[in-house]
Design a protein around this nucleic acid. Structure first.
Length: 463
RNA sequence: GUCCCCAUCGUCUAGUGGUCUAGGAUACCGCCCUUUCACGGCGGCGACACGGGUUCGAAUCCCGUUGGGGACGCCA
């Protein structure tokens, strides 16, 4: 059985790159009828924030990624880790190192400057006895030889063992470090496939050494190339949203985000649109790309508008209310409204704003539109139209279209003397959804009011 | 600095030695549709980083160069 996991550290929100990693793991598990687990890597007490875990869970819930079993918190598994650290100590596979932070800093500085360090980092590797000093526990890595493994994305990876130093597995306060707990937990949780970011490639060698030391079976590894920002660098807050929940606040549909992310570094021929079900069916890590990819906002926007267009209205109504506090009119007026807006909007946030613009009488009029269209006979025509409206009651979009047509025919006015001015009177600008539909949504009385308001505005301006 | 990874249109990508005068999507531009703006339809612009090999034949294999990215923590 395939078992995968997503193991974020709760230092902030769920990162967009993290979501892709989670998605790939989730898809692979679901495709194989396996298990997908969630594990919070919070061994470093100084960095953790409780809200962070909450935010991650909330983001998972929003995009619809479900996990099996309970969430595992590493901070609650101290006893387990201690047992395995003691085992390594007892077997002589790890040792206490009394190097001070200052000494380590010297070693590191020398290394980076290309000098030979003044102190051997393995100074205490063969030290016998105990010192009355703070210590960390280091793992004894083999001094020579070569280590290989087959990466599911990048192919064979190898390293000379002398390049891997005796790394720390427990801090001076006794808490275990990442490279150690990740191995213990992945083994104990029975993980078979580890899909994670490229930045872990080098850690993998250390982890394999640990698997070997315990005599545990090594899982399959797949290292995903990173997602870069639009300039090709590392994604940061400055590159727009990196927090997954920010996409919700910005009016993106979860399936659009997921569809966008699944195509970043993975493909299935020429196919662009994948429902969740299709992703599960078609996903295979063997089709993951080796090269890093960039975050392309306009492609995300395109997918989002696609999914908005294809969403049932009642779903949009719910999201509009939940995330933007917008009440869509009930009945056919709401249907007309959404039917129009769905076709021309890229995000739900945009849709919410457009609804506001339509339902609220304009507080000002686009000066360019006014200048261009409300000249000559236009104001007079609007006045005539207003009078005509008092005697009729068109209700549906076709009825409004018919009425407007008749009006133009009767009065001999040019369409551009009537249509654009009317639109400006109603929403304040010369662009927007279909005119007949717009008028039908507002209803005759509201339309008459708005025409009067514009006429008043024009008169005041002249006077 | 050391080690590692990567390299097809602006971007996401198809492509695993001949079917490639390199396909799709997006973005951009134009036309059509249209009483506006969009949507939609049609068309256009646009790439195998460079240099050497290997081969009858290379986007595809090998080497180098360049460029980009990552790792080098008592972070994960």
């Amino acid at each position: 059985m395939v078992k995968t996991r997503f193991a974020p550290s709760p230092t902030g929100f769920l990162h967009i790159g993290g979501l892709r990693t989670a998605l790939f793991n989730w898809l692979w598990a679901r495709k194989n009828g396996g298990e997908f687990r969630l594990r919070i890597e919070d061994t470093d007490r100084q960095r953790n924030r409780e809200e962070a875990t909450e935010a991650i869970l909330k983001a998972f819930d929003w995009v619809g990624l479900n996990y099996d079993g309970e969430v595992v918190y590493q901070s609650q598994r101290g006893e387990i880790y201690k047992k395995y650290i003691d085992q390594l100590l007892k077997e002589g596979k790890a040792y206490k190192c009394y190097l001070t932070p200052e000494e380590l800093e010297e070693i590191r500085k020398a290394k980076r400057e290309g000098r030979t360090p003044p102190i051997d980092i393995r100074k205490y590797r063969n030290f016998q006895g105990e010192l009355e000093k703070p210590f960390v526990i280091r793992f004894k890595t083999p001094l020579e030889g070569e280590l290989k493994f087959e990466d599911g994305v990048k192919g064979e990876q190898k390293v000379k063992l002398e390049e891997i130093e005796d790394f720390v597995i427990a801090r001076s306060d006794g808490t275990p470090t990442y490279n150690f707990v990740v191995v213990v937990d992945d083994h104990l949780m029975g993980m078979t496939d580890i899909i994670r970011g490229d930045d872990h490639l080098r850690n993998t060698f250390k982890q394999i050494l640990l698997y070997n030391a315990f005599g545990w079976e090594v899982p399959n590894f797949y290292h995903l190339p990173m997602i870069h920002n639009e300039k090709g660098g590392k994604m940061s807050k400055r590159d727009g949203a990196v927090d997954v929940l920010e996409y919700r606040r910005n009016g993106y549909l979860p399936e659009a985000l997921l569809n966008f992310l699944v195509r970043l570094g993975w493909s299935y021929g020429d196919r662009e649109i994948f429902s969740i079900g299709e992703m599960i069916q078609l996903f295979d890590p063997k089709n993951i790309n080796k090269a890093p990819s960039r975050f392309d906002q306009s492609k995300l926007d395109w997918l989002n508008s696609y999914y908005i267009k294809n969403s049932p209205n009642d779903r949009l109504v719910k999201i509009l209310k939940r995330d933007f506090g917008v009440e869509v009119p009930a009945g056919e007026k709401g249907e007309w409204l959404l039917g129009q807006l769905k076709e021309r909007v890229k995000t739900l946030k945009e849709m919410a704003e457009e609804i506001g613009k339509i339902l609220t009488p304009p507080s000002n009029y686009d000066p360019k539109g006014v200048k261009r269209f409300l000249k000559g006979d236009a104001p007079r025509r609007l006045g005539e139209l207003k009078e005509k409206l008092k005697g009729v009651a068109p209700a549906t979009p076709p009825e409004w279209d018919k009425l407007l047509e008749e009006f133009v025919a009767e009065t001999g006015a040019k369409p551009r003397e009537v249509m654009p001015p009317l639109r400006i009177a109603v929403v304040g600008e010369a662009r927007g959804i279909d005119l007949g539909t717009l008028l039908a949504i507002l209803g005759r009385d509201e339309v008459v009011d708005r025409i009067e308001k514009l006429l008043e505005f024009l008169q005041n301006r002249e006077g």
